[in-house]
């Protein structure tokens, strides 16, 4: 369907919106940004609504055991051709090493434990996003009310910790859920095959990948986000000090 005119038009419209909205916000900010806090607050409210809605739908889907899309890590499979097949390369590009190390699948019938772990990752990520949106809304409101430092450094530092712990744990729990789903899907206890069929190197080559095992990757973006919030908290502390110093000054 990717090639249909409607799909192309929709993709183009979506891309335009994705590019246009940030550009519009930057233009507004550069023109003095009088309405910027209101726009930021509205966008944050919209993000909260979308996150809540998407989380509820995803949670219901997971708990009901309906088909869900998962991306699971697999033992890398090198691209290969069946014996006797050769292709004329389109360019001079050649593969030296590596392989396909993950599979995106629509699956159903996952065990409850796996679904609960995936649900936990989803809820942690949603709660983290909502916490960040709440502090952004509070910041925007305090700017609109003419008291930009009303949010306070403690709230910003707390949000930094939430972002750090929530972001890292959501990613790690999500990866654990993916690995569990991978084992649930690709592990086998036995099977049958034609007598003559004996693939070297297991079943990965012919199309049945093996789970990659626990190889957790710690994401660094929550640490970056938390550091930015800590920096903003430092700026706010300085601003509060200046505001206090100027109180009662004539």
């Amino acid at each position: 369907m990717v090639g249909s005119p409607i799909a192309i038009a929709l993709t183009a419209a979506l891309l335009l919106a994705v590019v246009a909205i940030p550009v519009l916000l930057i233009i507004i900010a550069m023109r003095g940004g009088r309405h910027m806090p209101k726009i930021v607050a509205l966008v944050s409210y919209a993000v909260m609504v979308v996150v809540c809605g998407a989380s509820v739908v995803a949670a219901i889907t997971l708990l009901s055991g309906a088909a869900v899309e998962v991306t699971v890590p697999i033992t890398p499979v090198e691209p290969y051709l069946p014996a006797g097949v050769t292709l004329e390369p389109a360019t001079s590009a050649t593969i030296h090493s590596g392989g396909m190390d993950q599979a995106t699948l629509v699956v159903s019938g996952l065990p409850l434990a796996t679904r609960l772990v995936m649900l936990a990752a989803l809820l942690i990520a949603a709660a983290t996003a909502i916490a960040v949106c709440v502090v952004v809304i509070r910041l925007a409101r305090s700017v609109m009310s003419g008291n930009p430092f009303a949010v306070g450094t403690a709230a910003l530092i707390a949000t930094g910790w939430i972002l750090l712990i929530g972001g890292v744990s959501a990613s790690l729990v999500g990866q654990i859920g993916d690995v569990m789903a991978c084992y649930d899907l690709f592990e086998y206890t036995g099977g049958t095959a034609p007598e003559s069929w004996n693939p070297a190197g297991g079943f990965a080559g012919p199309g049945w990948p093996q789970p990659a095992g626990f190889n957790l990757t710690i994401p660094w973006w929550p640490l970056g986000g938390a550091l930015v919030l800590a920096l903003i908290a430092g700026v706010f502390r300085y601003g509060e000090q200046l505001q206090r110093d100027s109180e009662g000054l004539v």
């Binding site: 110093d245 100027s246 109180e247 009662g248 000054l249 004539v250």
Partner: peptide
């Protein structure tokens, strides 16, 4: 050239600091 509000703050001993210019 100082606002009445600020002068009132000064008059009623509610000021906590005063600029040299004022």
């Amino acid at each position: 050239g100082v606002s009445v509000v600020n002068l009132s703050v000064l008059k009623n001993d509610r000021a906590r600091a005063i600029r040299f210019s004022t």
